[in-house]
C-alpha cells in the first residue's frame, strides 16, 4: 500500500496554504468566501469525475504509489484530495496574478509622476 501520491498531494496543499498565508491571498483574506469557493469547486469537479466514471471513460490505475483505497468504484481516496489541491492552486494563481496586475499600473504611474516632478 503506497502513500507516496497521497503524501505528495498533502504536501502540495500545504505549500499552497503557505503561499496563501504569506501573501494573504485566499483563505487568509476571506476564510468564509474561500471555504465556499473550495467546496463549490471540489463538488463540481467531483461530479465531473463521477460522470466520467459512469460513462466508462475514467479508469483507475494500478499504480504502486497509490493507497488503492476506493471511495466508490474507480474513485480512489486520493481524488478529492487532488481536487482540493487543484482548486487551491487555481485560486492562489488567480489571486496572485491579480495582485501582480494591480501592482504594475501603480508602479508605472508612480514613475511617470516622478518624471513629471523632475
Amino acid at each position: 500500500m503506497g502513500a507516496l501520491y497521497l503524501v505528495s498531494l498533502l504536501l502540495g496543499i500545504t505549500c499552497m496554504l503557505l503561499l496563501d498565508h504569506r501573501f494573504r491571498l485566499f483563505f487568509w483574506r476571506d476564510a468564509k468566501a474561500a471555504a465556499i469557493v473550495t467546496a463549490v469547486g471540489v463538488i463540481f469537479l467531483l461530479a465531473w469525475d463521477l460522470a466520467g466514471i459512469g460513462l466508462g471513460i475514467f479508469l483507475r490505475g494500478e499504480g504502486t504509489i497509490a493507497t488503492g483505497l476506493l471511495l466508490a468504484p474507480e474513485l480512489p481516496i486520493e481524488e478529492p484530495v487532488f481536487l482540493i489541491f487543484l482548486v487551491l492552486c487555481t485560486m492562489v494563481l488567480y489571486t496572485g496574478a491579480r495582485r501582480l496586475l494591480d501592482r504594475i499600473p501603480a508602479t508605472r504611474s508612480e514613475k511617470q509622476r516622478e518624471r513629471e516632478n523632475v
Binding site: L45, V87, T90, Y94
Partner: peptide, 11 residues
C-alpha cells in the same frame, strides 16, 4: 480550464 473560468468569478 473549467476551474479557472468559474471559480475566480465566484470568489
Amino acid at each position: 480550464l473549467a476551474g479557472v473560468v468559474a471559480l475566480p468569478g465566484l470568489w
